[in-house]
């Protein structure tokens, strides 16, 4: 069986789709962080400004792994696809 260019292209696109399964992780992490942030505000409403800034920072850091997956997907689509 020979691997022609269409096979490579199709596999690259499939791989891009599979890579984005990594979106589960950051989604769960961000949801967890936001839930805990809401809990903290409920317990201590005076500190809501500080809690919000820490929460946004944590959420953006949790996004990193998702961004790595996104870069791999973009590379697969635009370089091989």
């Amino acid at each position: 069986m020979e691997f022609n260019e269409f096979f490579v292209k199709g596999m690259a696109l499939l791989g891009a789709g599979i890579a984005m399964i990594a979106g589960i992780g950051p989604g769960m992490g961000q949801g967890f962080a936001a839930g805990k942030g809401a809990e903290a505000v409920g317990r201590n409403p005076e500190a809501s400004g500080k809690i919000q800034s820490i929460m946004v920072l944590g959420i953006a850091l949790a996004e990193t792994t998702g961004i790595y997956a996104l870069i791999i997907a973009i590379l697969l689509v635009f370089v091989k696809g």
């Binding site: 996004e63 990193t64 961004i67 790595y68």
Partner: peptide, 16 residues
């Protein structure tokens, strides 16, 4: 590496 990729990925994703 992580500093580069985090910023690059976010902004590129927004552009695309």
């Amino acid at each position: 590496l992580s500093l580069t990729m985090r910023l690059f990925g976010n902004i590129l994703a927004g552009t695309i």
